[in-house]
């Protein structure tokens, strides 16, 4: 039995009310584990999670339970995340009865209101259904209603749309976005889909092998990535405007987090890797205001992608000028 020792390494990411933080990376790199560790659903082996001035990682289970009022999570698979033996209304009522001390009637009314808010048609009639009577998208709406029913200050959404149809995905994301604006809840959005984070987030953390590889504001990250891994991820997003050709993919697989090689964990798959990458763990380099990258050649990569961006920009401008002319 190996108990994996994750050493998350986030340099003081501040999330302000109403902001959204994206957490991106390939599967198996520790995004979900980080999300669950913040909520203490997986026990962190070290580190701190400061939330409203309290260190969540060091609270007792009892204290942590009280914090959960302000700290909610939506899970990846709505099909299995709701209790199949319990009516939807009852599962929603549990939240408000527990944290807000509502009576049964109050809680029921609130549950119906929440179901209406997340767009369940005919909410009052359907509140007493069981989860299996709902479709996947509906169940995810119920999960969102449940998570938001005590107006939490932080919502962690762990790949909330991966298990859903593409058309439903957009609806759910739109819903999260809208509710976030209405309530001022901050969101941590965990996903492997760069397209999703681009439109939703203010900041992005890129994770690889249980480490933060890059952190930056969303715009900045997409414009000038300062890490070869991020660049690889961005290149592997299919571009509908591009000419047909093979899709880019980062060679190899993410490493086994329990047995990381010495040096940079990404070195075996990295185009830019040199001898030093296989020997030494890379530094976390500050590239710009709120922009850090974990790479021996962070500045070089950053400079290169910035110049590429400038080139693209000027090219776009010339095309525009040409069209105008």
């Amino acid at each position: 039995m190996t108990i994996l020792d994750f050493r998350f390494w986030i340099e003081t990411i501040d999330i302000y009310p109403g902001e959204t933080l994206g957490l991106v990376g390939e599967s198996g790199c520790g995004k979900s584990t980080l999300g669950r560790a913040i909520l203490r659903l997986t026990e962190p082996t070290g580190g701190q999670v400061l939330f409203r001035g309290k260190d969540l990682a060091h609270l007792s289970q009892r204290e942590m339970r009280d914090e959960r009022k302000h700290l909610q999570m939506i899970f990846q698979d709505p099909m299995t995340s709701l209790n199949p033996f319990m009516r939807i209304s009852k599962q929603l009522m549990e939240m408000t009865e527990l944290h807000l001390g509502y009576t049964k009637d109050q809680a029921y009314e609130h549950a119906v209101k929440m179901l209406e808010t997340v767009g369940i048609p005919d909410a009052r009639a359907r509140a007493d259904s069981y989860p299996h009577e709902f479709s996947g998208g509906m169940r995810q709406r119920v999960m969102i209603a449940m998570a938001l029913s005590c107006e939490p200050e932080l919502l962690i959404a762990d790949e909330p749309t991966t298990a859903l149809d593409v058309t439903i995905q957009a609806q759910i994301l739109e819903l999260i976005k809208k509710l976030k604006q209405d309530t001022g809840t901050s969101v941590i959005l965990i996903t492997h889909d760069l397209g999703v984070v681009a439109g939703m987030t203010d900041h992005i953390l890129v994770m690889y092998a249980g480490k933060i590889f890059e952190q930056a504001q969303t715009r900045e990250l997409f414009a000038c990535p300062g890490n070869p891994y991020t660049k690889g991820l961005l290149r592997s997003v299919p571009d509908p405007t591009a000419e047909q050709g093979a899709l880019y993919q980062i060679p190899g697989l993410p490493p086994d987090v329990a047995h990381l090689p010495p040096g940079c964990p990404f070195a075996p798959r990295c185009e830019r890797a040199e001898e030093i990458c296989r020997q030494e763990f890379p530094p976390f380099v500050k590239l710009n205001e709120e922009h850090y990258s974990l790479c021996h050649f962070a500045e070089e990569v950053y400079a290169k992608s910035c110049s590429e961006r400038d080139a693209r920009k000027s090219m776009n401008q010339t095309t525009v000028q040409e069209e105008n002319a």
Partner: peptide
């Protein structure tokens, strides 16, 4: 199961989790 994780995330105590969500299944 996932739904017990959900119940824990809600902030139910371990006893409540067991009696309300685990026992039945």
């Amino acid at each position: 199961s996932d739904y017990v994780r959900t119940a824990r995330a809600k902030g139910l105590s371990e006893v409540q989790v067991v009696f309300r969500h685990v026992l039945r299944g």
